[in-house]
Simulated scan of single mutants.
Amino acid sequence: MLTIRALFCNFVCLLFSGLALAQTTPQSPGLTFLYSLNCTLGSALSVGAGPNGNRVVIPITGGSFKGPRLSGKVLPIGADWGLLDSQNIFSADTRYQLQTDDNAHIFISTSGPAQGDGRIHLRIKFETGSTKYYWLNNVIAVGILTSGNGYVAIDAWQLTSPPKA
């Protein structure tokens, strides 16, 4: 026979499990536009197979970027050290340098896989010592890369928290 305590515990467990099921999905974070970037590329160099796939190095030769809070040029320093995996999916792995219109330097690294539509979804990380752009060091950013003949275009957004309830 169940004791009153056991019945009460069963009732409380059922009550709380029902509440857990009734909870709503959390509110999604937002995205704030950072910039659009157009970058020129040099000739790709296939360096061959390694433990993670075929490495392809693509030099970054210049370009420009423009957004509401920062704009400037892409310096001809850096490359994409991407990988082509066993399923023939390319994953970007870039490091390159931006110079803003007011001469601040921002180091960028990106990574991310190609999608079925030919675009690449990027995780973007910024690094700068500039006081004006220091906020970028703490940004979680994503980008969508579209490639062309000798160039890539990247639209970048900052992840923003949803409003507090």
Rank of each mutant, 00 (worst) to 15 (best):
P29H: 05
G67C: 05
Q99N: 12
G30R: 08
L84H: 00
L15E: 00
G67E: 03
K125V: 13
L122R: 00
L37I: 02
L37N: 05
L70V: 10
D155P: 07
C9L: 13
L84F: 01
P76R: 12
Y151L: 13
I124E: 00
T131E: 04
V74N: 04
F126R: 01
K66A: 14
G63F: 05
T61H: 03
D117A: 12
T146A: 13
Y151I: 09
L31T: 00
S46K: 14
T131S: 06
I144L: 05
F16H: 07
P113W: 03
S86N: 15
A104Q: 11
N103Y: 15
A44Y: 05
I144A: 08
R119A: 12
W157E: 12
G129Y: 01
L14K: 11
S91I: 11
R69H: 13
T3D: 06
L19S: 01
F11E: 11
T40M: 03
D101G: 10
F16M: 08
Q158N: 15
G67L: 03
Y151N: 13
S161Q: 12
A141N: 07
F107E: 08
A156D: 03
D117R: 14
F11A: 15
A156E: 03
L19N: 01
P76I: 10
Q23Y: 02
K164W: 08
Y151H: 09
Y96S: 08
N88M: 14
S109E: 09
L19D: 00
P26G: 05
T160H: 08
Q27N: 09
G62F: 03
T100E: 03
L2N: 08
R55D: 08
T146N: 13
Q87W: 02
R123Y: 10
G82C: 09
Q158W: 06
I124M: 06
T24W: 00
G30L: 10
D117E: 04
T3C: 06
G112Y: 01
N38S: 11
T25D: 00
T128C: 05
K164D: 12
G118I: 10
D85Q: 01
L159T: 12
I108L: 14
F33T: 04
Q158E: 15
I124H: 01
L75K: 08
I120M: 09
N52W: 09
L98E: 04
S161M: 15
T128G: 02
V56K: 05
